[in-house]
């Protein structure tokens, strides 16, 4: 997939009013790899994704995908926000949520096409949630909710997938389902970025890591990023994990 474009983040700085959340981040995200974004709470992981997608203003910097700014090409993006951002009491069923993935492609004033419904059905099938299609989203477990959001992202037929902490409140089975699908997406030449903060065994699922703490600590192949020095700079002295550190 050498021809697919990559995302280039160039001198990105982001503030929340007078608090600096990210300082001068430069990195490249290539398609075909599973990219994990790691860092302690408040490191700016969510902020990095939001700023890359143009969902919030930046102080300086530019994020391009191919020849244009990424924010101008959001119809190629599927983004699943952090669980806490969603109101789970909202009156919608599993089916309603997955069909949201087809809204942009369907276009203004049009009704969903039969092929959109097929795509949504296939996406639900793929995450193992088809039998729940008429359930209210509030009547699902955390892992099931996360799978529904993954199905919505799949239905978007995007080129760039961003997941903010998809493994929070998720059991082993769902974690495996999610990782398998992320892997398939990467192998199909998509850009896959996953924010995570579990430094356990599951980190070996990622090919590339982006390690943040207000600024970029390191980015690149997993073993290259996971050094004792980098981990100390990101997490301070108190990180209990060194099992996979080179």
């Amino acid at each position: 997939m050498a021809t697919s474009p990559k995302i280039i983040v160039d001198h990105l700085s982001v503030n929340y009013r007078d608090v600096q959340a990210l300082r001068n981040v430069n990195l490249t995200v290539r398609p075909g790899k599973m990219v994990g974004i790691f860092g302690p709470n408040g490191a700016g992981k969510s902020t990095l994704i939001k700023a890359m997608l143009g969902l919030m203003p930046v102080v300086t910097g530019r994020v391009t995908y191919g020849d244009d700014t990424l924010a101008h090409q959001l119809d190629r993006v599927a983004y699943v926000p952090q669980r806490s951002q969603i109101d789970w009491t909202f009156p919608a069923t599993v089916w309603d949520v997955v069909m949201m993935g087809r809204v942009k492609k369907t276009g203004w004033f049009n009704r969903f096409s039969a092929s959109s419904r097929q795509l949504a059905t296939a996406a639900l099938e793929r995450v193992g949630m088809l039998e729940f299609r008429d359930r209210p989203i509030g009547a699902l477990s955390g892992g099931q909710q996360q799978r529904v959001f993954l199905a919505r992202a799949l239905a978007q037929e995007a080129e760039i997938f961003c997941f903010d902490e998809p493994f929070v409140g998720v059991d082993q089975k769902t974690e495996t389902v999610l990782f398998n699908i992320f892997r398939e997406l990467a192998q199909a030449g998509k850009i896959v970025m996953v924010i995570n903060h579990d430094l356990g065994e599951s980190i070996t699922n990622f090919d590339q890591l982006i390690l943040l703490n207000k600024e970029l600590i390191a980015a690149g192949p997993r073993d290259w990023v996971l050094t004792r020095d980098n981990m100390t700079r990101a997490y301070g002295g108190h990180v209990g994990f060194f099992g996979h550190v080179a």
Binding site: V77, M100, V103
Partner: peptide, 11 residues
């Protein structure tokens, strides 16, 4: 339902 997801999807 999901303003950020909608914005990120290009709406």
């Amino acid at each position: 339902f999901d303003p950020l997801g909608a914005q990120a999807g290009g709406l």
